[in-house]
Amino acid sequence: MIKPKIRRQLPLHLMVAPSFILVLIFSYGPIVGLMIAFQKFSIVKGMFGSPFVGWDNFDYMFKLPEIWQVIRNTVGISIMKIAAGLVVPILVALLLNEVRKQAFKRWIQTMIYLPHFLSWIILGGVLIDILSPTSGIVNQFLGLFGIEPIFFLGNAHWFPVVVVISDVWKEFGFSTIVYLAALAGINPALYEAAVIDGANRWKQTLHITLPGMIPIIILLVTLSLGNVLNAGFDQIFNLYSPVVYESGDIIDTLVYRLGLEQAQYSLATAVGLIKSVVSIVLISGSYYLAYRAANYRIF
């Protein structure tokens, strides 16, 4: 009985094999390399010849004078990004969902989706120009209301705000599409029933649309929690400057200067390992909570 089944499924197994092997080689294989986080790695001695130093690299990292400030910046910026990146797309998706004219809706969708395709290298230059206190369009606009020019990118208080807003602006179009897809999946019969029961638009949104979106919201929040220690390297790297290090320097930029520019691979690996551990704890934690609270399972 067993044999025919295997034979029948053999093509399927063969089809899945390449991706399985790739994941094994490129995702699981390199895990062995994590051991250099516990070594004083030297490229000459290699992974298997470098001496083990236990927790020295971690110890060194947590004794860096600026480490806590950097961790605070990272967590602060990314939590703000996660929160804003959750609320804004949901609101926009709800609003777009109410738009009756399809052409207009498509147009808006495309417009807000576009920035997603631009790289931060380009947007960094654009932002520096439009946020300039002397010639930037933002400050000229504020000037119409008698507001003194604000040096957004050169001011430690404003810098994280600019980072969060610009990130949301760049990415909310993408998430909006995901939520719109979820909205499209809600059974129209529910709305018809609600209308018959006398529910107005607001009540419909509250009792049908939002609950219908809950699974996808939980999925996205759970996944984004894994990014709490990723505050967006390419964005910050292209926008920051020594003036705003105190509020803008994040783990990744510090590791870039420390680990890569100075070729300290062990240290960079140790930091990467810490980030992965924190991510996996947060993801499994939030997944468990989602399961307990909303009885929702991703898998």
Binding site: S241, P242, V243, R257
Partner: peptide, 19 residues
């Protein structure tokens, strides 16, 4: 020690001088 600390010292120099 340069390998270990140069990035931190560079940051200090740039940050202080700029400020």
């Amino acid at each position: 020690e340069m390998t270990a600390k140069q990035a931190i010292l560079d940051k200090l120099v740039l940050e202080t001088f700029t400020k």
